[in-house]
Amino acid sequence: MNGELILFFVLAIVAISAALGMLFSRNAVYSALFLILNFATVAVFFLLLGAPFIAMAQVTVYAGAIMVLFLFVIMLLGAEQIQHQARRGWQRPLAMLLTLVLLAESAYLIFTRSDVLTVLQPAAADYGSPQSIGMLLFSEYLLPFEVTSILLLAAMVGAIVLVKEDKKSGGQK
């Protein structure tokens, strides 16, 4: 068992634990923090898989921007917790059952189709480097890249419009 495999299992345990922690924390702030931990471990996986650019993007965008936004909203709304209510009785067990089924399916797939899944080989030197990603983005995927910018702009405008106080309705209130 080499070091890389050990690292993988350790990280995997951390990632799954973080996910479970997010899932079952009573407090939304803890959930957010667990999720950040999860994202960080996933970023390390990206590094292991030869995707340093994506790993950086993961850390900055997800762990940095997005999760900060989450925390910000949680704290802004003061909605860390929700008072206990009568649960819909069959929702939770059914969800768990379905999740187990999904996992079983995945396991079946992994064990029956492991022949088509290759073992990862050491990658080329510049594989996944920011330079090569950048070359790809600005050549082959130029149009989707530009469309993404418009998407982001639209999301920004949308968010502002949604959150902005409606002067008229506010005045009426």
């Binding site: 929702q91 059914l94 969800a95 379905l98 999904l102």
Partner: peptide, 8 residues
């Protein structure tokens, strides 16, 4: 849940 059921 229904969507998930369908997906599964």
């Amino acid at each position: 849940l229904m969507v998930f059921f369908g997906v599964v």
